[in-house]
C-alpha cells in the first residue's frame, strides 16, 4: 500500500539529501539535484528536511494513491492535476485512496519533487535512501521507478484543511531571465589561458542533451590550457566545473564520482546549484565569477531564509493539529 506508479515518467528516482560518509570507499553521494525545492517540499509538510522524496525529471509519472495521505509537490512545474483537477506546487495537498496524480512535461525547470507527510517507507542502504542507478543500490531496488511499482509510505494521514501555500517567489529561480551562474575559481584556474578565462565569463553556454544526473556537459566556446599538464586524480564536489582536453566543460552533479582527473576551472556556488540543476537543455546562460566569501554569504542567507520558512510552517501545522 502506498504510491502506485500507473504510468512511468522519464526518470523518477527516490532521493534524499545524499549518501555521505562513503566517498572514501568510492561511493557517489547521489541525492536530489535541487535541494532547495526538495527541502521546501518537506518543510511544507513539517517533515524532517532530509526525508526521502520522489525526484521526477523532464516528464512526470502518473501515480495512484492507495491510501489517504498528505503530499506536497515542488520544483519544476509539470502541470500537476489530481483526478484531472489542477493543483499547485508548494501547497500541502490531501489525497484520498484511489485518487490519481497526473504530471506532464516540465514547463519550467526539469526536476519536480513529491514529498509525502511522514515519509516513504524505504530501507536505508549505507545510511541513505538515495538511489545509485549506476551501482544499483538504495532507493527502490536501486533503479528508476517503473509502471507497476508500489512505493510504501510510513503511515496514512487523514484529511486536514490547508488554506496556505509557499510563496511562488520561492520558485521564481526556475524561470530566471537572463540566467547567470556564479562560480568561484577552481583549483586549476591558472592552468587556463587569459583569453579562455575571459571567454568563460563573457560567452553563452548551454547544456548538451548528453547531460545527466552525473554531469552536465556544456556546449559553447571551448577553453584552452596554457600548457598540456596531467592532473593527478583528486577530490571533487557537487558543482565542480571540470575541463577535459576537448575544452568543453563538464559540471559534476549529484551522481558524480568522489574524485576526478580533469582540471577544474571553477566551482558553481552552492546558492546557485538549484538554479543550475534545473536548467533546461535549450537555455543559454553565462558564468560570473564571485569571491569565496560572497559565495559563503549567499549560502548562509539561503539557510536563514529556509529557517524562517520552517518556523512559519511549523506554526501553521501546530495550529492545524491542535
Amino acid at each position: 500500500m502506498g504510491l502506485r506508479i500507473i504510468e512511468e515518467g522519464f526518470i523518477t528516482t527516490i532521493q534524499d539529501l545524499g549518501r555521505y560518509g562513503y566517498q572514501s570507499f568510492g561511493f557517489s553521494v547521489n541525492g536530489v539535484m535541487d535541494n532547495w525545492a526538495m527541502r521546501l517540499a518537506n518543510i511544507a509538510l513539517n517533515n524532517h528536511e532530509t526525508e526521502a522524496v520522489l525526484e521526477m525529471s523532464f516528464l512526470g509519472p502518473s501515480i495512484e494513491f492507495e491510501e489517504d495521505m498528505i503530499i506536497c509537490l515542488s520544483g519544476a512545474d509539470m502541470s500537476p492535476s489530481i483526478n484531472e483537477k489542477p493543483v499547485t506546487n508548494g501547497k500541502p495537498l490531501t489525497v484520498n485512496q484511489g485518487d490519481t496524480l497526473q504530471l506532464r512535461t516540465a514547463k519550467t525547470g526539469i526536476h519536480c519533487y513529491l514529498a509525502v507527510k511522514g515519509g516513504l517507507k524505504i530501507p536505508e542502504v549505507l545510511h541513505s535512501k538515495s538511489t545509485d542507478m549506476k551501482v544499483e543500490l538504495g532507493g527502490f531496488q536501486g533503479r528508476k521507478l517503473q509502471t507497476g511499482d508500489v512505493i510504501p509510505i510510513h503511515q496514512p494521514m487523514k484529511s486536514r484543511p490547508f488554506n496556505w501555500y509557499l510563496s511562488k517567489k520561492l520558485f521564481s529561480y526556475l524561470d530566471q531571465n537572463p540566467t547567470v551562474i556564479h562560480f568561484i575559481e577552481g583549483k586549476q584556474y591558472d592552468w587556463f589561458t587569459e583569453e579562455s578565462k575571459q571567454t568563460f565569463e563573457n560567452e553563452l553556454f548551454q547544456l548538451s542533451t548528453q547531460s545527466d544526473r552525473m554531469g552536465y556537459r556544456l556546449t559553447g566556446p571551448s577553453l584552452h590550457f596554457k600548457k598540456q599538464q596531467e592532473l593527478i586524480t583528486e577530490g571533487v564536489s557537487f558543482g565542480t566545473i571540470q575541463v577535459p582536453s576537448s575544452g568543453h566543460p563538464i559540471v559534476l552533479m549529484a551522481d558524480r564520482q568522489p574524485t576526478g582527473g580533469y582540471p577544474k576551472i571553477g566551482q558553481v556556488i552552492q546558492a546557485d546549484l538549484p538554479l543550475f540543476s534545473q536548467l533546461r537543455p535549450s537555455k543559454a546562460f553565462t558564468f560570473k565569477k564571485c569571491s569565496l566569501s560572497d559565495a559563503y554569504r549567499r549560502l548562509l542567507a539561503t539557510e536563514t531564509e529556509l529557517n524562517q520558512i520552517r518556523s512559519a510552517t511549523k506554526l501553521r501545522w501546530e495550529a492545524i493539529d491542535s
Partner: peptide, 18 residues
C-alpha cells in the same frame, strides 16, 4: 566534519559550513 576523501597526493575534506 562530514567526510575525508584521500587520493594519491591530496585529501579532500567535506564539511557543513552552516
Amino acid at each position: 566534519f562530514i567526510e575525508a576523501v584521500p587520493a594519491y597526493t591530496t585529501i579532500t575534506i567535506h564539511f557543513d559550513p552552516v
